[in-house]
């Protein structure tokens, strides 16, 4: 099904999508319509324009490819599936995400990957091609976040408070110098061979969609952020 979303209110647009049984949904001229592909399972969405907040929220198995930029809360509480964004993405992307993969060609806004978590075969992955805003991976409980820093010329590709409250998962950052002034919950080290082999298939997918060279990208310097077990929450309390 192909829908021209020009001037269409999101309720009507999403009702139209739900009423349609087609596997492939193509939507043109999106302009801020919310909750596209919300809770969708096993369908393929091709979106052109700018989808609104809550794109693919609670999504559980569908694939969404966006030719354009995205707004806030993309992949919020997403369970599985894939989102491919040919552009930049707004704030609060991948909040509470539990599975699947989000590939962002460009930059991501504030609070990306907050409280992502993993469980058995649910291993969420957020790959950001450019740079990330403040609060990346706060309260991270599981999964993988990678910021490739393309265009950042080797500089630290995030802003403030990266990984605050982190207690699981892994953040990989491409930068030439070891990131400094990170919160006490975070340990920093050079990416090991295991870290890089964990990252490699996602970089390959990134390059497949967005056309960079895998080998050039993988040959750069990467640092890994992991939770500091010394800073766990247990030590916070006393009781009778």
């Amino acid at each position: 099904m192909r829908i021209n979303a020009f001037g269409m209110y999101y309720r009507k647009l999403n009702e139209t999508i739900r009423a349609c049984s087609d596997h492939n949904i193509v939507i043109d001229h999106l302009c801020g319509q919310r909750y596209i592909a919300c809770a969708e399972k096993d369908r393929l969405f091709t979106l052109r324009g700018t989808p609104g907040n809550g794109l693919a929220q609670y999504m559980d198995g569908a694939t969404v490819e966006v030719f354009g930029n995205c707004q806030e809360a993309v992949g919020d509480t997403m369970n599985s599936g894939e989102i491919i964004i040919h552009g930049h993405c707004g704030d609060a992307c991948a909040y509470g995400m539990r599975g699947g993969r989000i590939l962002i060609e460009g930059n991501v806004g504030y609070r990306a990957g907050v409280h992502m978590k993993a469980h058995l075969d649910h291993q969420p992955v957020l790959i950001v091609g450019g740079t990330a805003g403040s609060f990346l991976g706060e309260y991270l409980a599981g999964g993988l976040i990678a910021v490739l820093g393309i265009g950042a010329k080797g500089a630290y590709p995030c802003r403030y408070f990266c990984g605050t409250g982190m207690h699981g998962g892994k953040i990989i950052l491409r930068c030439d110098k070891k990131p400094e002034a990170l919160p006490p919950q975070v340990l920093v080290s050079l990416a090991s061979a295991d870290d890089l082999s964990e990252l490699a298939p996602h970089v390959e997918a990134y390059c497949h969609h967005f056309g960079h060279d895998v080998q050039t990208l993988m040959a750069q310097t990467y640092y890994v952020l992991t939770p500091n077990p010394e800073a766990s929450y247990k030590r916070l309390y006393t009781f009778e």
Partner: peptide
């Protein structure tokens, strides 16, 4: 849906809610 033996932390705020408009969302 978290690994065995790991802390389950519910952050103080919802990090996607900073206003009534965000709550509405």
């Amino acid at each position: 849906m978290i690994p065995e033996g790991t802390d389950a932390i519910s952050p103080a705020p919802h990090h996607d809610i900073y206003s009534i408009e965000d709550l509405r969302q």
